[in-house]
Simulated assay, not measured.
Amino acid sequence: MQYTSLPPGYLTTTLAAQAAGVQPATIRDWVRRGILHRAGGSTRHPIYTVDAVTTAQTAAKPNRPGQRAHR
């Protein structure tokens, strides 16, 4: 299901990734880790608020054992 139009201030996973400058997999990882919360949509096609994405982008991310450092 593709959204033909979203309410103002909401983003799909792809649009959220573009806005944050990351890959869509990173957005899904943030959700799984509790850094970003869905604002609606369905399980397969979630939507997020712009404010939640920008907050998640600037949030401190805990390191996981074995995770490579970004340079």
Rank of each mutant, 00 (worst) to 15 (best):
A19Y: 02
T55F: 13
G41K: 07
P8T: 04
Y10L: 14
A17V: 01
A60I: 00
A60W: 01
R71Y: 13
A56V: 09
R32K: 13
R32M: 07
Q2K: 11
L15S: 11
Q23W: 09
Q67R: 07
P8R: 09
K61Q: 11
Y10F: 12
Q2M: 07
H45Q: 11
G21K: 02
V53M: 00
T54G: 00
H37N: 13
P24F: 07
A60F: 02
I27C: 01
Q18V: 04
Q2G: 05
I47G: 08
R32D: 03
T55S: 14
T55H: 15
Y48Q: 04
Q67K: 04
R68A: 13
G40F: 05
V31F: 10
G34H: 11
Q23S: 13
R71Q: 13
R32G: 06
P7Q: 12
A56S: 06
Y10T: 11
G9P: 00
T26C: 02
T49Y: 10
A69S: 12
H70V: 14
K61N: 03
N63C: 14
S42N: 06
G9I: 00
Q67T: 06
A56Y: 07
G34R: 12
A69D: 13
A52K: 02
A25R: 14
R38H: 04
T13H: 07
S5Y: 07
P62G: 01
I27V: 15
V31Y: 10
R28D: 11
A25Y: 08
Q23V: 08
T4Q: 13
V31P: 14
Y48G: 03
T54P: 00
I35F: 11
G40S: 08
T13K: 12
L6V: 04
T13G: 10
T43M: 11
T26Q: 10
L15Q: 14
L15N: 13
P24T: 08
H37A: 14
R68P: 14
Q2H: 11
A60L: 02
H45R: 10
D51R: 11
M1F: 07
W30D: 03
R32F: 06
R33L: 05
Q57T: 14
R28Q: 12
T43I: 13
Q2S: 09
T43E: 15
Y48F: 15
G40R: 10
L6N: 01
A69L: 13
T49W: 10
G41C: 08
G34M: 09
P62M: 01
Y10D: 00
Y3P: 05
G21L: 02
T14N: 11
R68V: 13
N63H: 15
P8D: 04
P65H: 11
H37C: 09
G66A: 09
G66C: 08
T4E: 14
P46L: 09
T54V: 05
Q67W: 07
T55R: 14
T26N: 05
H70I: 12
D29N: 15
T54K: 06
Y10E: 04
M1P: 00
D51I: 08
S5Q: 12
P62I: 01
R38K: 14
P7R: 10
Q23T: 11
R64G: 02
A39H: 09
D51E: 12
P8A: 09
T43W: 11
Y3M: 05
D29Y: 12
A20S: 00
S5R: 12
Q57Y: 02
Q23R: 12
R71D: 13
L15F: 05
A52D: 10
G40P: 07
Q18W: 03
Y3R: 06
A25N: 12
L6E: 01
